[in-house]
């Protein structure tokens, strides 16, 4: 790791002002992505601004049909939260299969979506549920927030404060784990909104990051059941291929994971 300067912010405003005063600052949440990258000397921020102790970034709120998860909430806290389990159990399940216990105790929803790894789990949930990302400056629809591999609508120094999820009628998430990293080799989040809209998002599959899967959405709109997807064909074009999975395999997984997610959603 290169030399860096560590700051612990006690409020979002302080974090923003610290960021403004540094030459090349990075916000630190759970550190499960940023720290390994710094250790490998692939990132060398002049300053690291820790968001971990900011109270306003912690916690979960359920009000009416909206479940709000503050950005600094850890996966473990999300997984065990009663409101999450009640309102959107698929999110509790998603966090339970995310990484390993060490990652779940440290990693945060804000860090995950800010990083937008093409194989991360949460981006699929945000996209399928039509969530809204709240920052210190504005609200951004999930569609507009994720902009391809490791890239988002966030501006320099902008802080995610929370994610607001509309509570769906039904939702499910199934994931084939990457055998080494345990990220999603492919994961599919399916959701049926209370107004009857069907949204399906796949992560780990596409070369351009998290994506909607219109063919499966159409099939499920007509008939919300796993067998409705039987006849859907997913093209391997544009899908990721690496030592752990060919593009054809990932195309198959999009379909199989979607079927299992529908079964899980009920």
């Amino acid at each position: 790791m290169y030399q860096t300067k560590y700051h612990r912010a006690s409020s979002v405003d302080e974090a923003v002002s610290l960021f403004g005063k540094s030459s090349e600052a990075k916000f630190l949440a759970g550190g499960q992505t940023l720290l390994p990258v710094m250790k490998q000397r692939l990132a060398s921020p002049s300053d690291v601004i820790d968001l971990g102790k900011i109270k306003e970034l912690q916690g979960v709120e359920l009000s009416g049909d909206t479940l709000t998860i503050k950005a600094g909430t850890t996966y473990y806290d999300i997984m065990t939260n009663a409101d999450v389990k009640k309102a959107i159990p698929a999110i509790a399940h998603l966090t339970s299969v995310l990484g390993d216990p060490a990652v779940r105790y440290r990693g945060t929803i804000g860090g995950s979506i800010a990083n937008n790894d093409p194989a991360a789990d949460f981006p699929a949930a945000l996209l399928a549920l039509g969530a809204t990302v709240k920052t210190n400056k504005r609200s951004i629809a999930a569609e507009d927030f994720f902009q391809g591999l490791f890239s988002t609508a966030l501006e320099d120094g902008e802080i995610i404060t929370a994610v607001a999820f509309p509570v769906p009628a039904k939702a499910g998430y199934e994931k084939m784990r990457h055998p080494a990293s345990r990220f999603a080799l492919t994961g599919v989040f399916v959701a049926q909104t209370k107004s009857g809209e069907v949204r399906v998002a796949a992560t780990g599959a596409s070369q351009s990051g998290v994506m909607r899967v219109p063919a499966i959405e159409a099939a499920l709109k007509a008939n919300w059941s796993p067998s409705a997807i039987d006849s859907v064909s997913i093209s391997a074009n544009g899908l990721l291929a690496d030592i752990h999975g060919t593009a054809e395999y990932r195309a198959n997984l999009v379909k199989v994971m979607a079927q299992r997610a529908v079964a899980a959603a009920g």
Binding site: D100, P179, A180, S181, I243, H244
Partner: peptide
């Protein structure tokens, strides 16, 4: 049998030089 494989590309570049790519059994 199921997980581990130290792989090189055709130019001799290792592509499994970390636990994020080389699958150790857990």
């Amino acid at each position: 049998a199921l997980l581990e494989h130290a792989i090189y590309d055709d130019n001799g570049q290792p592509i499994t030089a970390s636990f994020m790519d080389y699958a150790m059994p857990r």
